[in-house]
């Protein structure tokens, strides 16, 4: 947060048409908006919501994979997984920092997450019962996330774009380690291959849901596109993901759990693309609204870390205050 000692962030400009037009002209000229620039309240709120959700997703996302750190089957896999889950924490941290430039504190955002007021990516409300899930998450979930995140590096809000550049740079190993892991299962015993297929069956549809509701139902898309916070629609990104992922599955001998999946020459303006089956949006909304298998466990785990950590944070603050007094007295 840069707002201390700065003037712009705490006062809200009058949002007359001239102001909104001038703001839109900056956006259209691909100028970056920086923390203390005047901005419409709705732009600020959209960013706080989006960056907050994104940060929460990274933090909650540590849990399903973290579940396997102590059980990773080889030391090589263990260090890769540990480094990856640690990265997710780092990404959450960069993103909270970006949101803090808009005048909302990390504590406030954390409390919104714990109270259920703030959302995070629903994908993390699915369980990771097998080791193969660690590979599948890296391959599909990180793969889908990258599709979403690469365009965000060009987001009109400077701190978000900068955080995303760092995130994307670090993410690049995540999808590769996931795919490599799944590939090694496919090259292993029949049990291992079955484990990989079972995992793909469970994660394929939820990862398609990660791109959000279809464009026809998406409540935030239009304005976000206009403000260049988002650069592609949910359906565009989803299609890109399907087209990229299906051949990757074929290459390692796995099949997608979708009988309606087939190549369509006409798609993507004649370049071809995959048609795929109907997504179960009822399931999507059920999980978004808190009724997935792991929703309650995820929040409970975050709550536990936050509450049980309070005495540690309090101690550090108390020590800092004492040190300040001691220095002043000396």
């Amino acid at each position: 947060m840069y707002s201390q000692g700065l003037i712009g962030a705490d006062s809200q400009p009058v949002e007359d048409q001239a102001f909104l037009d001038a703001f839109q002209r900056r956006i259209d000229a691909e100028e970056k908006i920086e923390p203390n620039d005047p901005m419409p309240m709705a732009y600020r709120n959209t960013l706080v919501r989006m960056i907050g959700q994104h940060a929460h997703s990274e933090i909650v996302g540590m849990l399903p994979e973290g579940n396997w750190i102590t059980r990773a089957p080889s030391l090589r896999r263990k260090v890769a997984l540990l480094a990856k889950v640690q990265d997710e924490g780092g990404h959450g941290l960069y993103l909270y920092s970006a949101a803090e430039t808009l005048g909302v504190s990390r504590e406030q955002m954390t409390e919104e997450l714990l109270s259920g007021e703030a959302k995070y990516s629903s994908i993390f409300n699915y369980p990771t019962p097998t080791w193969a899930d660690i590979g599948t998450i890296g391959w599909l979930v990180d793969g889908a996330a990258i599709m979403n995140q690469v365009p965000l590096c060009r987001c009109s809000y400077g701190p978000y774009a900068r955080a995303m550049i760092r995130v994307c740079k670090e993410e690049s190993f995540h999808q590769r380690q996931g795919y490599e892991l799944v590939k090694s299962l496919c090259e292993g015993s029949a049990d291992q291959k079955a484990m990989a297929q079972d995992s793909l069956n469970r994660w394929w549809w939820p990862s398609l849901m990660m791109f959000g509701p279809p464009d026809t139902d998406s409540q935030h898309s239009d304005q976000s596109m206009k403000w260049k916070i988002k650069r592609f629609t949910n359906d565009e990104l989803r299609q890109k993901f399907v087209d990229a992922t299906v051949p990757q599955a074929e290459l390692i001998g796995l099949s997608m759990p979708d009988p309606d999946l087939k190549w369509n020459e006409e798609k993507n303006n004649g370049q071809g693309g995959y048609d795929f089956g109907e997504i179960d949006w009822d399931e999507f909304w059920r999980v978004v609204n808190g009724h997935g298998m792991m929703n309650k466990d995820r929040i409970a785990a975050r709550k536990k870390a936050w509450e049980e950590g309070a005495w540690v944070r309090d101690a550090a603050k108390a020590y800092a205050a004492k040190q300040k007094q001691r220095t002043a007295a000396a």
């Binding site: 201390q4 000692g5 700065l6 712009g8 920086e34 203390n36 005047p38 780092g90 670090e170």
Partner: peptide, 25 residues
């Protein structure tokens, strides 16, 4: 947090409250 990938050889930290900036207006 910020030097896990050999990003640097020196760190400065400044309390955000101590940063003073020009007014965008």
């Amino acid at each position: 947090v910020y030097t896990r990938r050999e990003e640097g050889d020196s760190i400065w930290v400044v309390a955000s409250a101590d940063i003073h900036a020009s007014d965008p207006a």
